[in-house]
Design a protein around this nucleic acid. Sequence first.
DNA 1: CATGAATGAGAATTCATTCAT
DNA 2: TATGAATGAATTCTCATTCAT
Lengths: 184, 184, 184, 184
Amino acid sequence: MDKRLQIIEAGMKLFVENDIQATPMSAIAKEAGTGMGTIYNYFATKEELINEIYLFIKQKQLQHASLSNQQDGVKPQFLQFAETFITFLLENPACFYFIDQIKNSPILTSETKLQGLRVYQPFLEILVKGQQQGIIKNIDIEEILHFLDGGLMGFLRWAISNGKCTDRSIVVNHIQMAWDSIKS
Amino acid sequence: MDKRLQIIEAGMKLFVENDIQATPMSAIAKEAGTGMGTIYNYFATKEELINEIYLFIKQKQLQHASLSNQQDGVKPQFLQFAETFITFLLENPACFYFIDQIKNSPILTSETKLQGLRVYQPFLEILVKGQQQGIIKNIDIEEILHFLDGGLMGFLRWAISNGKCTDRSIVVNHIQMAWDSIKS
Amino acid sequence: MDKRLQIIEAGMKLFVENDIQATPMSAIAKEAGTGMGTIYNYFATKEELINEIYLFIKQKQLQHASLSNQQDGVKPQFLQFAETFITFLLENPACFYFIDQIKNSPILTSETKLQGLRVYQPFLEILVKGQQQGIIKNIDIEEILHFLDGGLMGFLRWAISNGKCTDRSIVVNHIQMAWDSIKS
Amino acid sequence: MDKRLQIIEAGMKLFVENDIQATPMSAIAKEAGTGMGTIYNYFATKEELINEIYLFIKQKQLQHASLSNQQDGVKPQFLQFAETFITFLLENPACFYFIDQIKNSPILTSETKLQGLRVYQPFLEILVKGQQQGIIKNIDIEEILHFLDGGLMGFLRWAISNGKCTDRSIVVNHIQMAWDSIKS
DNA sequence: CATGAATGAGAATTCATTCAT
DNA sequence: TATGAATGAATTCTCATTCAT
């Protein structure tokens, strides 16, 4: 019924399966069970569709992460946030692959990239608090963020590609490395 | 004179400036100062050209990194290797952007990806030695590698995009985080 | 209005005028009054278009020939069939040229060639009946067929090239030679 | 040693195996064991090469046929000529395929076609003599020729494609049909 | 809103021919 | 005379987007 959602989901599926540039809009229409023109009623261009899929995923990530950040200590909050973050992507590999594929592409507008960063807002606050308390290294917060984000994505790429999605020990390992890298 | 090299360099330049799928072979020919057909005397398809550019960069990375690994301790070796690695990419941003853009694309053949991994061989040996000496965390070596690689690329993406290429302090920060994340 | 038909007819016309390999798809589009892409909505490749034109002509031949084969004797039936066959091609020289040009080309799939042979079905039946009645030489039916077909095409090539299309006497001559060659 | 001959033979071989338009000059150079440019020392264009191959085959046909036409009667001469003609092509299928492929192509110049017709000169003389003696149908000599030529080629196409090259009975059948078709 | 046939600019690739060695 | 790397015009085919129904 919700054509817009159908199109977003069909697009994500095919973009991930075949690469964005190898996925014609017609294939998305077919997968979504709509006509070609219908897509253009909701998204002005292919690029806009891609941007909207990106934001759709980011939205889901945010919902997932914000459910539980009521802990008080910096370290527990960090661990908690990292785990929910990882878990979401491990459980939604299509989301991971899409984000990984598009993250650095000029197809994303700077506005979209900016909105995407909101997902990290809770994370930034934790880091800042940690720095104030002297628990976390006194390094430019953005530098830390990009290091952690890159490490996370690299780890997930390996984990998902090698079918380790259900192996909890590697998640623990990863969070351990992440925390050790930034604690004072 | 060396047409092959001219083409590789023109390809890298344009692929990085405009995105691969937005760069027609004709543009590469023009940039390289050759005819269209000449490219196809050296590379059977656009995909082969891309694979060869990837291997060309990896080759340069390897030469750069292997210059100096005569240190004896695990930590100094690690720091040394990480620094040369980072330095090379900071000084050759086009190489970084190309690798970052193509690394996970299905355009790269598995054979190419395999050859690309050779760059990390010295690194792997350091990590293994470190684990044997109990200096480095006892985590699957591949997991560590992908975490570090992802973190490095994420950090470089940020550093290069924000014009921090010449700021030596951030390199130090990064190496610090990298080492802390894996040491026991 | 019927784009498919327009394209088939434009293709036949140009292929015959200029040779197949000298006729770009763009020229066909122009002649048919459609866009380039429209052709590819109906025919997946140039080769498929060629195959379909061949079958289109064969279809027309079949319709033309099957109108009148109610005669009873073998000889009258033979003469009748031969004449309708010749007449059709004499009156549709473009069809003749196209068939003559493509008949032995590897561009035609074996499936297409097989379907094309259906045109000769009524003819084969006449020949078989003639052999049973001892009227026709007792030679492998396929050998006879290829001799007659070759002779017919050779004759038409000459007749059409020399503007004898309307000269009824040569048709009579031809049929005479054809019949004499196979009668016991 | 004789580069010209090597090139002609390589060209015939590849044109027959792959179709003319699918055979690049570079492939011919390779097959002939010469450089690309060498071909152009002997033949100004690809078309000229094709014309020369055609004439080369016609030349061989002529030599083969003219060996033995000393018989005196019209019918024996006819049978003799037809048989040598058929035999040559059955024994040299590449020649047959090449001629069959190119015979009606606009690639052949009218001059080339004219020269090619010389092969039939002895045949024409036999036919004329036969007509004068009332042995052969009183039909335009060219019409007869094209009928016979077409029938012959059609028959050979079938015979060679179906591996009947060594089956002498079909040659006899064919000559029988040919003679019956033209005799008074 | 929904549809999908029509469109044509644009891309990869081929290959006959040239010419410097 | 022999060579084969270099050339670029020409060709097939794709696909984002439009618009009449």
